[in-house]
Design a protein around this nucleic acid. Structure first.
Lengths: 188, 188
DNA sequence: GCGATTCTGGAACGATCATTCAAGTTTGGC
DNA sequence: GCCAAACTTGAATGATCGTTCCAGAATCGC
């Protein structure tokens, strides 16, 4: 028995992520997905089941990648506030590539339990990481100690979404930069 | 020649707004629209042309209604800052009904010129109204005079989107209230 | 080279899509 | 009561949807 070549599942998912991010779930056809994923139709259905399961897998992978990027940014810099700034800066820099997290939230809201679970798990870990780093920043005197770290984290996440919606709508870079600065100022 | 009854175009558009808000453009079928609008299929196409033109009309009407609500809130209260707070409070109170503005932005980004035009016109008027009220609040000493009113308005609009995305994702009311408070604090 | 396995791509299927056509129904003016 | 205008509804159209079936090409262990 031989196994000639097994295609790269993650690379295929990245293609699916690009299509779903740009066109949403309903706006993405199987043909578009097949083309972007670089695999055959049969392989798609064999590997992922159906379009919805593929979508969920794409959202999960996208979210994990985003979390990893946010964690890395948060960890960077001498002080915790530098990490927070780096995370926001990264969001602004990538604001013109559509966000599958925001996109799937807007498209389906809380109507699909499996999608809600994926979002909840990802949101929880990101939230916890930001809270931890925010406490550090408070201890270092860079963030107002009077503010609730939980509320601060929610505020940051909401503004990440806000910046991405603005970028998706075509706001110019100076606007996004101003948003970034306003958010950083709000922490003090 | 007789005209038996002409259906209420605005009421029909409200039905379309409800469907498009909940399911997006691609997720809304003509049958769903006809049912929600309370008119026949033939009337739909006669009155609006096709699904895309209906969508644009719905987005325009929705945006005008939202702008009107924001203007009214902004105008309320003794001081300008009260009006700003009222606007944010209203956003939190309605955060569980999906926003067609955010939804259409996420679904299509800046890829459809006619949709971009509609968004731009609405965004411009809302932005100007907030800027004006923000200047008042600065004059009254309730908003930091060192901040650029334009940036403040952009910040507010981005946070309105952020709050709505959070609400769409199922965030609980206390989270939304905390966001509202964080935004108000950021103005000082 | 052979057989087994995994891929690709096209053809096929039934369902649903947006849109149009073709009655039939309601209503107001005369 | 009758005509004409505006509506509703169901059927038809052609396209596209997600999905499956099927045949051929590619690749590994032997």
């Amino acid at each position: 028995m031989a196994r000639p070549r097994e295609f790269d599942t993650d690379a295929a998912l990245d293609g699916a992520i690009a299509v779903f991010s740009e066109h949403g779930y309903e706006g993405s056809s199987a043909q578009m997905l097949v083309d972007a994923m670089g695999i055959g139709r049969q392989s798609l259905y064999a590997a992922f089941g159906d379009k919805w399961q593929l979508y969920c897998a794409a959202v999960r992978r996208y979210g994990m990648g985003e979390c990893a990027a946010h964690f890395e940014a948060l960890r960077s810099g001498a002080r915790a506030i530098d990490g927070i700034a780096a995370m926001l800066r990264h969001v602004v820099e990538t604001a013109y590539t559509p966000c599958l997290g925001v996109g799937s939230t807007c498209e389906f809201g809380a109507s699909r339990p499996d999608l809600v679970d994926i979002h909840a798990a990802l949101g929880r870990t990101l939230h916890m990481a930001i809270v931890a780093r925010m406490r550090d920043a408070q201890r270092e005197g860079d963030v107002a100690a009077s503010l609730d770290p939980e509320a601060l984290a929610q505020f940051l996440i909401a503004n990440i979404a806000g910046i991405r919606v603005a970028g998706r709508g075509g706001a110019d870079r100076s606007t996004l930069a101003a948003l970034q600065e306003m958010v950083m100022r709000a922490l003090r």
